[in-house]
Amino acid sequence: MKLKTKDFLTLDELSSKELSQIIDLAIKLKKQKNNKAKPLQNKTLAMIFQKPSTRTRVSFEVGMFQLGGNALNLSPNDMQISRGESVQDTAKTLSAYVDAIMARVFEDDLLEDLAKNATVPVINGLSNSFHPCQILADLMTIKEKKKKLSGLKIAWIGDGNNVCNSLLYGCALSGINISVATPKEFQPDSAVVKKSKSKTQVELTTNPDDAVKNADVVMTDTFTSIHNLDKKRVKKFLPKYQVNSSLMKKAKKDAIFMHCLPAKRGIEVTESVIDGPQSVVWQEAENRLHSQKALLISLIK
């Protein structure tokens, strides 16, 4: 399977069929962990990191290795871009050497410039507005646990951040209904909400209890950047938007709990939930590897 899109920046580039095919391929790859096939032999992925990373870096690097390829870890300080070389020139130069570029950045404009000027696929490994690779793993995990996607309900609790924006697109493509409970000033991007509403049921609320009612999946994320814990910002979420045992009991009995990690235990989620029987966060984390392998195979021609 090859995707019609050259790049993977927001999830919105994909069709419902393409998303489903990537998820199914990821599940297949996971079952074939010891498969000796090397579909990306002699292929190279350049990885640009403006932000620190654990799951994104390790999963992409290990994924390329398992597929027979190579991955190059590049920080801005390793490149001439730190000395003023343009994004455009950087994109054209990297395209001459590698088969794909993954970038974990602050500004979405940088990703768009990379994609516009690169002749190889550009993958969003996280930006201020979106985190599409995380949602591939999340949807894969949900399908593994629930055996389907369409018709399910996800409750997102907390901050309408980049992960939430990408989740909305993922729900729209897969037929999942979603209820997002946030303080009014922390709702997800209005344009993303509007577009997603045209394809699935999207509810915005300030009440977590309403959001989790009849939910098959309860999800959250940190209330602030994991590297910058703004205490004033956190106070706007606590205790109302913390996922705890009491809130989980208001979802379906077989509801699962998900968190993209890293987590601030005792803040957005209690230890009783993240370490409890409903939590699938470690399966979710592992699935970053398998879903990204499926994405890489689908993107690299």
Rank of each mutant, 00 (worst) to 15 (best):
D99S: 11
K293P: 00
T220S: 08
V62L: 15
A118W: 03
N117T: 11
I267D: 04
V281A: 05
N77T: 13
E203G: 12
S129G: 08
F106G: 13
V234Y: 08
S225D: 14
E203N: 15
V280S: 11
I300V: 11
E13L: 00
A71H: 01
N124H: 09
S198A: 15
S15E: 06
L126T: 00
S291E: 02
D24H: 11
H131V: 05
K232L: 12
V87W: 05
K252F: 03
L173H: 09
I176F: 14
N161Q: 05
V202R: 05
A285W: 10
L136E: 04
D159K: 01
N207C: 11
D113W: 15
H131R: 02
Y241M: 05
N42D: 14
E13P: 01
P39D: 03
N35F: 11
K51R: 15
N165L: 00
T93S: 09
D24N: 14
K252V: 00
E112R: 15
K236R: 14
S272G: 08
S174Q: 12
V192G: 00
S279W: 10
I267R: 08
S190C: 10
F237C: 01
Q242F: 02
F49T: 07
G125T: 06
T56Q: 13
A255S: 10
S225K: 14
L25H: 15
P188T: 05
N214W: 10
K250M: 04
Q41F: 14
R83N: 15
T206M: 12
D12V: 02
N161P: 03
L247G: 00
N128D: 15
S291C: 11
F130Q: 04
W156L: 06
I27R: 13
I256N: 03
I256C: 08
H227R: 11
V193K: 10
L126H: 02
N77A: 15
